[in-house]
Design a protein around this nucleic acid. Structure first.
Lengths: 109, 109
DNA sequence: CGCAAATGTCAGTATATACTATCGCAACTT
DNA sequence: AAGTTGCGATAGTATATACTGACATTTGCG
């Protein structure tokens, strides 16, 4: 799971993930979107693949990637669980605080 | 926003965040939970603070921290938006693809 | 087979960062 | 005022990692 988190932290990898979220793309096509070398993108793809965030399919000499929704869903579930436990309680506290502050102020809607 | 993402990536900082999610805690109390030096924890707290994920309050010589739900909510909203846009669509595609494979042979374009 | 295209792998490098040690600062205590 | 407590800031170090360049591999074509 830490692998998936590490993977989406790198901005370049998030961009790559966005690219292959809507469409399948070959490694070369992905690399063409960036100003770094093809190898660098290849390494990013490897990391995304190991983290389960993209799938790889071979077509001749090309390797075609796309986002792997299951991987994204797992990561999302983990993060949700991470903070949702107490987030609601804390949110209530903040809202109560805000209500207290705006009590004497104008109230719209 | 990248600051918030960088902040929650580091496992130690996620632990710290968990500690101050339920309760206010002074820096020293937080540091006592870990086997690294007090200064290291202080640096983590600074990073969490700059990312807007914790709030700081002074009480005499002590600095008391706690999770900042707004910061967490913003981060969560960003991540939600990041992958929820196409997540459902991709899931449908994958399921359709799997049906196609079990149906008959592969057909490319 | 020989060559080109598309891509991954590896070694080396540069930069980021998590940590420690030392120091500095503010608030209390005596 | 002087000492103590609780912290943060900074410099230096060790490790992680994003990148490039060189090379290897697989596939397709003549």
């Amino acid at each position: 799971m830490q692998a998936a988190i590490d993977a989406i932290v790198e901005p370049r990898r998030r961009e790559i993930l966005c690219l292959v979220r809507d469409q399948e793309l070959a490694a070369g096509r992905i690399a063409a979107h960036f100003d770094v070398t093809r190898q660098a993108v290849s390494q990013h793809l490897r990391i995304l693949y190991d983290a389960g965030l993209v799938s790889e399919r071979r077509d001749g000499t090309r390797r075609i990637y796309r986002a792997r929704p299951e991987g994204l869903a797992e990561l999302r579930a983990f993060l949700d669980q991470f903070w949702s436990e107490r987030l609601e309680a804390l949110k209530s506290e903040v809202e109560a605080e805000q209500r207290r502050r705006t009590d004497d102020a104008d109230r719209k809607q």
